[in-house]
Write a protein that binds this DNA or RNA. Sequence first.
DNA 1: TCAGTAGTAGTAATTATTACTATTTTGAAA
DNA 2: TTTCAAAATAGTAATAATTACTACTACTGA
Lengths: 120, 120
Amino acid sequence: MILEIVRSMKNHPNAEEIYEIARLTMPNVSLGTVYRNLKLLAEEKKIKEIQFEPGKTRFDGMTSEHEHFICTHCNRIFDITPTPTVKYLASTNPEVRELTVQSYFLTYYGLCKECGPHRI
Amino acid sequence: MILEIVRSMKNHPNAEEIYEIARLTMPNVSLGTVYRNLKLLAEEKKIKEIQFEPGKTRFDGMTSEHEHFICTHCNRIFDITPTPTVKYLASTNPEVRELTVQSYFLTYYGLCKECGPHRI
DNA sequence: TCAGTAGTAGTAATTATTACTATTTTGAAA
DNA sequence: TTTCAAAATAGTAATAATTACTACTACTGA
């Protein structure tokens, strides 16, 4: 049930937000239960925990490899499909080639289409 | 003073660790002062706040563009010099090209030289 | 010298998260 | 179906990281 909720929420919610949605269908679910299940789901790799701002863990039901873009103006978070994967990039970096890369976490910061001019 | 301490610590310390070092030279500095100055320094962009594990903010005195590698076995954090910059990579990604990228944050997870075989 | 500002120590408060405990639910064997 | 142990839960207490508050000190410049 909680897994379904996280999967249906596309806005990278935190535990509190998931709890609010969960209460709509399970009116007396407790926050502790939400936390516990989120942790279990994360351990089973069915959801991802992500850290953007300090002290706030967010959850992401999309487990396929993807990146994020955070608009520094409106604070919205966008999902980005990686085109040439960072693993390829890693393979061209001598420092990284000596290590075994299993996964990576990449977040861009900048201005989204609505908030800023198109420019790199 | 706190800026010097953060710059001298290469291990991405958290506030508590910085506090411990600060007390060596300023025995009655308070933890609140350390937190306040770290926040000020971060606002002035003289240090960077980084989030690896949930609920723990670490600080980095190296403000030049660089990436991190975290060994999933020994949990050590390594600094990585970006070779082809991710900005270049971003420019090849149509999704990202429509946005204004100001900065990025990239962390690799995997096994370091001591903990795992060399393999990509 | 003195008033005002800024910075600090020390403590209290807040926030996100985890732990605990008594109770409820579940599910499989009898 | 009944029974009973194991697992999950609600509700609350506890913890950890961080921030806010307050009274006090130090520094500043006129």
